Simulated scan of single mutants.
Amino acid sequence: MSPNMPGEPAYILIFKPDSNHADIDFGFLTRQGIDIQFAGDKKTMIRMMQVKQAGAVIAFYESEQNSTIDFLRYIMRQHPDTQRIYLTSSLDKEVVEQVINKAHVNYLLTLPVETEHLGKIISKALKRYYFLVNPSNRYDDLAGITADLLGDVNKFRDEANRDSLTKLLNRRSFDMMLTTAVNQFRERSIPFSLAIMDLDNFKKLNDTYGHLAGDQVLRVFGQIITRNIRHEDSAFRYGGEEFAVITCGERSKQMAVIMGRLHQQVRRKKIQFENQQIRFAFSAGTAFMRDNYSMTQLIQSADAALYYAKKHGKDQVISYETIEPDL
């Protein structure tokens, strides 16, 4: 067996690309300058690996999957640096357990698989292979692999903190960031305000136009909020059709500016949905943090102002400070 020398490009060995998998065009690898070789049986694959080690082996699920798994297990033992990629259309628990526990595959993909995604997996597999066989490049490769992993972690962390529909920060993020804002107010006297907003007559809108239209309204409102807050402010989907904004600034002055812009733009906005034009409105309650407030009291104050806005006509922004004597 001849391993690849440092700097020498690795090739991809594809095992059993039968007619069932003809929809996968591996030509995209060739176009990227990657050498690919095919083999239809285990003996041919072993012979090819003895001549020159592959950077990665791609194997497909077949009805008699034991032969494929046994081959991958052979690769794991004889060529541990070669990356093992297993493609399967079966989600059978026994199959999954075998390819993980017996063959220790590096990547398990379900069919059908998008070419772009498969390409990314192969790229990661080759990067890992080069890391293992070229000791002189290990530090550079390790830095690259670490950067990829950190990028994935940051991506997943960001997704975990955001609402998937509106792309705004979610309720979990709201709780954490409001706690931070309260602590900064107490420790460093940094003022801030809170707004809680609610879309008016949203249930009626859903009943009239359908839930897909309602989702579109939520998305558009989220976009309008994002465009109208400053970098140092934060916007959240508070829950359902409720949204929240935390803004830094002298008492509620900055919040009033932001809420004013939001109201102007929402009143002018027409959403085109399936040949229908949809208009919507929102009500909001605002409150600024005070020395004697807890976080709960701040939320309750903004909620009380929102309730007042809803009760007295909707489609308006009410500051808790302006109605406090009436409550």
Rank of each mutant, 00 (worst) to 15 (best):
A10T: 02
S193A: 15
I225H: 00
Q53W: 05
V257T: 09
A244H: 02
I196T: 05
G7F: 01
T286C: 15
Y307A: 05
S2I: 08
R138Y: 13
K93D: 05
G240S: 13
Y139S: 11
A103L: 05
L168M: 09
Y11P: 01
Y308E: 11
S136K: 02
Q276H: 11
Q50R: 15
V105F: 07
A235E: 07
P135V: 09
F71R: 02
Q83L: 08
R73E: 14
V105E: 03
V220K: 11
A10Y: 04
E187F: 09
Q78I: 08
H231M: 12
D175S: 13
D200L: 07
R138V: 05
Y61M: 03
P191S: 07
L109E: 01
K124S: 14
F288M: 01
G222Y: 06
M255I: 03
R227Y: 05
D303A: 05
D163W: 10
S234K: 08
I34Q: 11
H117Y: 14
A56H: 00
N206S: 04
L168S: 06
Y11A: 09
A281F: 13
I14N: 01
N137R: 15
Q98G: 00
S123D: 11
D18M: 05
A56V: 01
I75D: 00
Q83E: 07
Q297P: 02
P325M: 03
I323P: 07
D207S: 04
Q53M: 04
Q264C: 09
A281N: 12
E232T: 10
N66K: 08
I229E: 03
R84L: 02
I196A: 13
N134P: 00
L150E: 12
D207H: 12
K102F: 04
A305S: 06
E64W: 09
M176E: 15
M45N: 03
F60I: 06
D18T: 15
K204F: 10
F28Y: 15
N292T: 11
I278V: 10
A143M: 07
T247W: 01
S283I: 05
F28H: 12
K314D: 08
K16N: 14
M1A: 14
A56G: 05
A256P: 00
L306E: 03
F26T: 13
A305G: 06
E97L: 11
S123T: 10
F15I: 12
D92Y: 04
N137I: 00
I196Y: 06
D92Q: 11
S234H: 08
M197V: 09
K127L: 14
L178W: 02
G55N: 11
S123V: 00
I34M: 15
Q297L: 15
Y307I: 10
I190R: 12
D158P: 02
L108P: 03
E8G: 03
Q216G: 03
V96N: 09
E250D: 10
I75P: 00
L169M: 14
R31L: 12
K124D: 14
S193V: 12
S173T: 15
G222D: 04
E94H: 14
Q53I: 07
Q272F: 08
I271Y: 04
E62R: 06
A10W: 06
D70C: 07
R290Y: 04
D152Y: 00
Q98E: 09
N20Q: 09
Q65Y: 12
R230N: 08
E97Q: 09
R128S: 15
Q216M: 10
N137V: 07
N134E: 14
